[in-house]
Design a binder for these strands. Structure first.
Lengths: 190, 190
DNA sequence: TTATTATAGTATCGAGTCGATACTATAATG
DNA sequence: CATTATAGTATCGACTCGATACTATAATAA
């Protein structure tokens, strides 16, 4: 019935959620971008917990990403440490305080309430279509997918509960296999 | 397959499109928000072409909306005029230059290319689910829907090609009935 | 009528985003 | 060992955006 185009719809939805995220974060002195960055590191695996990866994920320059991180660090929501092997890289962890805040703020109340209004089936349909849309966009944009490790082209099952990354050849824990990875690639033929 | 949650998906999609919109507008000295505002006025009907309506649409304060408009006016993309009946209100029109720019920039190339990759049926499925999601969000948020006039609860067909708004009692042209309206309300039982 | 209150919009300020540029430090490559 | 690439930071300027205060006009109440 509605004659709105897809792009307008996405814009509308984005505006509503952004306004909500702004309000949610404002109470704790956080901008929407900062909240997104915090959420990213809470779900990033060991190949993806760096400022450079955040910049790619958010689609901003590394300078901007660096600034965002400085704010989060000053607030005690994340901590940094130097990588042992490559002393150029900095690794970022979410602190207990950061995790606590995330649990409280994300997803925002509007989203939670909206989800409650939907049947499980309806929510699943929406999610399925969103996944399709995202994949096409990423494919066209040739951007990294930042998918979950165990859905990756490089993910190997070595029998039982043993997993390995085919790209780095390193073994992976179950927990690790559920985090998002910068090197994630869509399985061919999916 | 994917274990990402709906909210993360929306965030990802939003980031990709926002980065694209930023790039598109940057070449013409426009910020993403300014482009959105311009697009809004290009599709706003006569009840909705004011700074206050823009503020509601974008979810920002009227001060912010006013500033955004000042930029667009300085660039010659919109023009303002006083309302005849209520001298407090300002009406905003997109200039020829503004329309020209919009045609060039929106929807952004990424979206156009992605659409080209999808079958008509797949695109329709995505759009349908986006509409559902948006409606639930608006319902929960109790925000205005900003829908197209002829999908409104107040829209009246008076036989043939004659239409009328049941809220203001004014007659509507066919063209007008295709624009978005600040007073739009979802039909009950849809 | 006249006071009060509500609404539309602008002006101004400060905190923050974000891109651009330049820079340092380390690693990889020739 | 020189060159080049990469990770990250520092700094600056243009801009967003909320908060607050303000003006002008309209609607409402006394």
């Amino acid at each position: 019935m509605s004659r709105q185009h897809g792009y307008d719809l996405i814009e509308r939805i984005g505006n509503l959620l952004r306004a909500e995220a702004r309000q949610a974060g404002a109470g704790h002195g956080l901008q929407p971008v900062q909240l997104q960055a915090l959420a990213y590191f809470a779900r990033a695996n060991r190949y993806s917990d760096t400022p450079a990866a955040l910049a790619e994920y958010l689609g901003v320059t590394k300078g901007t990403a660096s600034q965002t991180l400085m704010v989060l660090e000053a607030l005690g929501l994340v901590s940094k440490r130097e990588d042992k092997d490559d002393r150029r890289v900095t690794r970022v962890q979410v602190t207990a305080k950061g995790h606590q805040l995330l649990d409280k703020l994300l997803p925002p109340a509007l989203w939670r309430n909206a989800s409650a209004e939907l049947s499980a089936a309806a929510a699943q349909r929406i999610e399925d279509e969103l996944v399709r849309l995202l994949r096409v966009l990423q494919q066209v944009n040739q951007s990294r997918t930042f998918g979950v490790c165990n859905t990756c082209e490089h993910f190997l099952r070595e029998g039982g509960r043993k997993f390995r990354c085919g790209l780095t050849a390193e073994p992976l824990s179950i927990e690790e296999s559920r985090l998002i990875c910068r090197e994630h690639e869509l399985k061919t033929g999916t």
